[in-house]
Design a protein around this nucleic acid. Structure first.
Lengths: 224, 224
DNA sequence: GGAGAACGTTTACATTTTGTTAACAGGCAG
DNA sequence: CTGCCTGTTAACAAAATGTAAACGTTCTCC
């Protein structure tokens, strides 16, 4: 899920934007103060920022400049009040990517956000590779030699857990805790059954595991 | 030629705007009453609307809200009387794109109209395609092999949400939030019922979905 | 204003898909 | 060799989904 940081001192506008963003499937983080917003940006590394030009604490212009100076690539949309003379050249200079003038329609803002994300994040598309297998986390799809493969929820969850913990031996308990959660208590043998299924679907030769290795007496290890 | 619908109860203002618009090469349609204006909008599908906030019959706020709820994308400029406290947030919420305060100069209004048309027109004539289906967002029409298809409001909203989020698995909660809004809480099974209906209307073989895929344990995925 | 249609929602049931476990076979390490 | 550990499969249980029908509400048209 993509995170959007909103820095604006108008509380009701902030909330409205927040609600809208969450309806549209984004995670919205709302900040009132300029300086706090700047620090939040450094910590949070959001996928996109909406920044009011005039802010208490630290102006939107300053925020943009300093973030860019710190080599932050986060795309930024500037929100400017209706009276402000918006100088496009200035915006370019400070490293803003787009701007909208208040009052703006929510559809317009959303369209700008989507357009900017599309423009800037072809590489945000996170795809894992190993062998002839490809896992697209955004689309929640597993491809083998380009062909889409059907995987069940349990298999998919197990697979992504392996992907995120390569090379490390993982005990069955660790796997159960992380993939199944603390609440359900299936048998540890359940893990084995699902590893078998992953091997059948993803190993060149399921009888001689190459990627999903057994660590005898411990658990399993994924080697990309 | 672009059509602009003007909804305002002040007769002389209405006429002034009408004359000006026609001088500038627009087609102007003038309506006094709010409710009539709303209906006219549905019928006429104008390129842009000027809507007074306070109106007999149906307020400008209501008009905007209902049009947006019906997925009408027409850009709207709100005309507000000088006394009215114009709440930016309110405008955002109801889906207005801009506003001008009476009394306004004709050049100012014209500039806003042109700016808004420019802002919104690149994606104005947005038509989605998949298979033998065509969806015209402006006209709010769904065609299958060129034939107009009847779709209910709920179906249409669901469909456009899918169109705008292709390839990505959408959970029932995400769908409910975005399509039904965060205030109403229908059963998640309601989503299923409507997906079935979409399939029946739009799939080559509703029994073997090709476009509206089930992601077991997650939700649905639209693959154009 | 009332009858009927259209629509959204829920419910119930059938069906499909998935998860889990038991059982047995085979392998590994000491 | 022997006692655990793992691989594998099939059967059963559980969960998720498909679907149609029923219900209540709103809208429409006389």
């Amino acid at each position: 899920m993509q995170t959007i940081l909103v820095i604006d001192d108008d509380e009701s506008l902030r909330d409205t934007i927040g609600v809208m963003l969450e309806q549209e499937g984004f995670r919205a983080v709302l900040v009132e103060d300029g300086r706090q917003g700047f620090e939040k940006a450094l910590l949070l590394k959001p996928d996109l920022m909406l920044v009011d030009l005039r802010l208490p604490g630290m102006s939107g212009v300053e925020i943009c400049k300093q973030l860019r100076a710190a080599q932050f690539q986060t795309p930024i949309i500037v929100l400017s009040a209706i009276g402000d003379e918006v100088d496009k050249v200035l915006l370019l200079e400070i490293g803003a990517d787009d701007y909208v003038v208040k009052p703006f329609g929510s559809r317009e803002l959303l369209a700008r956000i989507r357009a900017l994300l599309r423009r800037t994040s072809p590489d945000a598309h996170k795809v894992f590779h190993f062998g002839d297998t490809e896992i697209d986390l955004d689309r929640r799809v597993v491809l083998r030699s380009g062909e889409e493969l059907k995987v069940t929820p349990a298999e998919y969850n197990l697979l992504t857990y392996f992907l995120q913990n390569p090379d490390r031996p993982l005990t069955r308990d660790m796997i159960l805790n992380s993939v199944w959660g603390y609440q359900s208590f299936p048998n540890t043998r359940t893990v084995d059954a699902h590893v078998v299924k992953l091997r059948q679907k993803l190993e060149p030769d399921p009888n001689i595991p190459r990627y999903f290795l057994t660590v005898h007496g411990v658990g399993y290890r994924f080697v990309p």
